[in-house]
Simulated scan of single mutants.
Amino acid sequence: MSGTTVTLPGGRRLRLAGGTGHPRPDGPPRSRIAYAAAHVVADPGADNTPGTSAVLDWDRTLAFREHLWSYGLGVAEAMDTAQRGMGLDYPSTRELIRRSAAQARAVGGRIVAGVATDQLPPGPATLAEVTAAYREQLADVQAAGAVPVLMCSRHLAAVARHAEDYLRVYDDLLTAADGPVLLHWLGPMFDPALTGYWGSTDLDLAADTVVELIKAHVSRVDGIKMSLLDAGREVALRRRLPAGVRLYTGDDFNYPELIRGDDSGHSDALLGVFAAIAPAAAAALAALDRGDLTGYDEIFAPTVPLARHLFAAPTWYYKTGIVFLAWLAGHQDHFTMVGGLQSGRSPAHLATLLTLAEDAGLLPDADLAAARARAYFTVAGVAQ
């Protein structure tokens, strides 16, 4: 078989037409702030097996960020999309943040970067140790020149006994920050170790704690990224935020409606899916800037089935699909991931993802995408 046809598991043949693409905008969107959470590109010649130190292809990793900036999107660096807690160790993370922030300054790109506690070894830690780990990473991000995102911490979730423990730790961090930061609420569908974050499995009580924290530090909080895949809860929290504090949607299921907003306001964006759909996302936001709501809806509509499949349970393996799409689209030359995570999704799952990417017009070079898809499915035992 040759050309643009791929045989998928089960024998179905898919002919790729490729995407017509979207023009690069003149600059960032004006009516919304939008960040794409970027993945990292592993060095395919290095070990990069589970438990080893991560080795990155720095040229390709930074080139992908330049791709996002070229479409007017900001980069959310060293977030869970970059395999924090799933293969990317902290020494590599610190270097990633340093290099990306320097590149952002060189091209005039917007950047935020994750602050966590993953330099601590797995296992129990005290609140004092968690706070110290957070503060070390906060200093690293600030020194690099990126805006900090205070990510949810597995260590804090394990040691905190009630909401006051979270408030104590975050009060310390917000007081130490040298400027406004973003908060982060990542649900257990993304990381089961974060169950009960903010001191309760009752999400209404957890939201009360978040609002209490933000109201106590309004001048230090730019906004909060919320990733619960629950549009209703996001809108409810958004309506409770003090004036000037943004809600950055991390809802990769319902982003079009949340970014579009309603009479009471809108969400800005910090999304992993935006890395996979950057040209479409930029075009949709440009349409929103023009007041073209029909165009906005039409551009985003075909990306939603892809996003819902990409982030399907077990959601934490969405990174595998992100890298698969980056490979098919020509942003990297291989499908190898830090920690061997390329095995995180099945050939059947990736076959559906390929079909949905084709439907959404996200494969700019049909010949390249087909050749790479055929190579992958051949190795997976699907004769081409």
Rank of each mutant, 00 (worst) to 15 (best):
D202Y: 09
R98W: 10
A313I: 10
Y296T: 06
M189W: 04
D268F: 04
D47K: 00
T126E: 05
L62A: 05
Q342N: 15
L120A: 06
A280Q: 13
L363S: 05
G250F: 14
T93Q: 15
V273L: 14
G72W: 09
G321V: 03
H39Y: 14
F300H: 05
F300T: 05
G361M: 13
A207E: 14
P25M: 06
H331I: 08
D89A: 11
R374S: 08
P256E: 04
D118G: 02
A37V: 12
V40G: 04
T81G: 03
G272Q: 09
A143P: 05
G295P: 06
V304D: 00
L150N: 11
P44T: 02
P23L: 14
G187Y: 09
R233H: 07
P305F: 01
R84M: 15
A284T: 04
G11H: 01
G3Q: 07
Y90L: 13
G74Y: 10
W185A: 14
V6D: 00
D252H: 11
D297Q: 09
G3T: 00
S31M: 00
Y317V: 10
L310E: 02
G187L: 12
I33M: 06
D80K: 00
P28F: 06
A42R: 07
P188G: 09
F324L: 12
G265H: 01
S267L: 01
